[in-house]
Design a protein around this nucleic acid. Structure first.
Lengths: 210, 210
DNA sequence: GAAACAACATTCTCAGTAGTATGTTAATGT
DNA sequence: ACATTAACATACTACTGAGAATGTTGTTTC
C-alpha cells in the first residue's frame, strides 16, 4: 500500500521531470517562444495531453525549468560555503563550481537566459507574477552568496574590489557567458571541462595584468 | 535635381532608421517574438504599411537592428586601435569604450542578445542564412580586435593570459553582461556612466586579487 | 467487480500575427 | 496637366499555436 503509493509518486514526478527536461532542450534549441508544446511532447514521443496533464500552462513549464536551473546552481555552490579557507580561495572554488554547473546543465541555463523577465513582461495572472518575483528573489539570493564572500575577502584584505556590486556583475557576466559560447562536444572529457572551468574562474579573479 | 534626389534619399533612410530604432525598443521591451510589427508601427504612430514598405519581413528588421548594433560597437572601439600605447592600457580603453556603447545603445545591444542565432534556427530562405552568417562573421571580427590586443599584450609581457580564447570570452561576457543589469536612470549623468564603464573595465582586467 | 481516478491521447476552438492586396495622397518628373 | 511613383494607410487572408473539451485505457480503492 505504502510501497504502491510511493511508486505512484515516483512515477508521477518522473514523468513530470521528463517533461521539464524535454522543455529545457526545446527552449535551448528553439527559444522560449518558438518552442511549442507539441515540440516538447514530440521529444518525449508523446502529445499535448501528457504535458497539460502535468502543467497548467506553458509559463508553468518555464517556471519549473527556471527553478530547476537555479537549484542546480545552489547545489553546486552551497557545499563550498562552510569551508574554512581564505575568501579569495573560496570565491575561486565557487566560480569554478558555477562554471561546471553551467556546462553540466547547459539546456537549463540557456533557457533561463533567454529573456527571464522579458519573457513575461506583464504576466496575465497574479499567481504568475508571484512565482516570477520569487524566482528573481532566488537569483538575487544566489548572487548574494558571491557578494558575501567578496565582502569577507575585502575585509580580510585578500580581495580588492572598487565596487562589490560591479564585481559581482563582472563575475556573473563572465561565468554565465559560458552558455553563449560553450558547446558540448562528445569527445570532451570530464577533465577537459574542469580545465575550462578553472581557467575561466582564475581569469576572472586574477585578472589579466601580468 | 540632385538636391532633390539627395533629399529623397535622406528622407527614405531617415524613415527607415526610425523604424529600426523603434524595433530595437520593442525588441528590448517585449522580446524578439512577442514584439509585433504592429507594436513597432505603434511606437512610430504609424501602421504596418510603413514598416513593410521599407522591410521585406520581420527578420529583415531584426537583421538591420543587429547590424546597427555591431556598427555602434565598431564605431566605439576602432578609434582606439591606432593608439601607440601599451597593450594593457589599450585593452582597458577598449573595454571602457565597449561598456559605454553598451549603455548608450542599450535597446540595440539587448536586442541582439535575445537569441542571436537561436532566433533563426533554420532560417527559411537562403538569403537570410547568408545575412545571418555575415552578422556572425562581423561579431567574430569584432571580438578578434580584442584578442589581437591581448596577444600583443602577452608578447609584450604586460598581460598574462592562460588562454587568450577564454580571456576574450571572460571580457566579452563581463562587458556584455551590462545589458542584463544596467538600467537607464534619468538622473544619471554622463560622468556616472563613465565611472561604471571604467570600474567595470578595471575589474575585468585587473581582477579581484589584492 | 464496479466506481473513481490517474495518465495520458485526440480533437476542436479561438485569438493573435506575419504577410499580402489593395486603396490613397502628395510629390516629382516631363 | 498628366503620368508615375514613393510613401504610406486600410482591409483582408492564412496560418499557427495555446489551451480546452472530450475520449480512452489501465490501475487503484472499497
Amino acid at each position: 500500500m505504502q510501497a504502491q503509493s510511493v511508486k505512484n509518486i515516483t512515477v508521477k514526478t518522473d514523468s513530470r521531470q521528463e517533461i521539464i527536461d524535454a522543455a529545457a532542450q526545446c527552449f535551448m534549441q528553439k527559444g522560449l517562444e518558438k518552442a511549442t508544446i507539441d515540440d516538447i511532447a514530440d521529444v518525449l514521443g508523446a502529445t499535448k495531453g501528457r504535458v497539460y496533464h502535468h502543467f497548467r500552462s506553458k509559463n508553468a513549464i518555464y517556471f519549473a525549468v527556471h527553478r530547476q536551473a537555479m537549484q542546480y546552481c545552489f547545489d553546486g555552490v552551497e557545499p563550498l560555503l562552510p569551508l574554512l579557507i581564505p575568501s579569495d580561495k573560496k570565491l575561486e572554488k565557487m566560480a569554478t563550481a558555477h562554471a561546471r554547473v553551467m556546462m553540466d546543465t547547459l539546456p537549463y541555463q540557456r533557457s533561463i537566459r533567454l529573456g527571464v523577465e522579458i519573457y513575461l513582461r506583464g504576466s496575465t495572472t497574479e499567481t504568475e507574477r508571484g512565482v516570477l518575483s520569487e524566482l528573481i528573489t532566488l537569483r538575487n539570493d544566489y548572487e548574494d552568496l558571491y557578494r558575501d564572500v567578496m565582502r569577507a575577502g575585502v575585509a580580510e584584505g585578500r580581495l580588492k574590489l572598487a565596487n562589490v556590486e560591479i564585481g559581482g556583475r563582472v563575475m556573473m557576466g563572465a561565468l554565465n557567458g559560458l552558455v553563449d559560447w560553450y558547446r558540448v562536444r562528445p569527445e570532451q572529457t570530464d577533465e577537459d571541462r574542469d580545465v575550462i572551468a578553472k581557467t575561466l574562474a582564475q581569469t576572472v579573479i586574477c585578472g589579466m595584468i601580468a
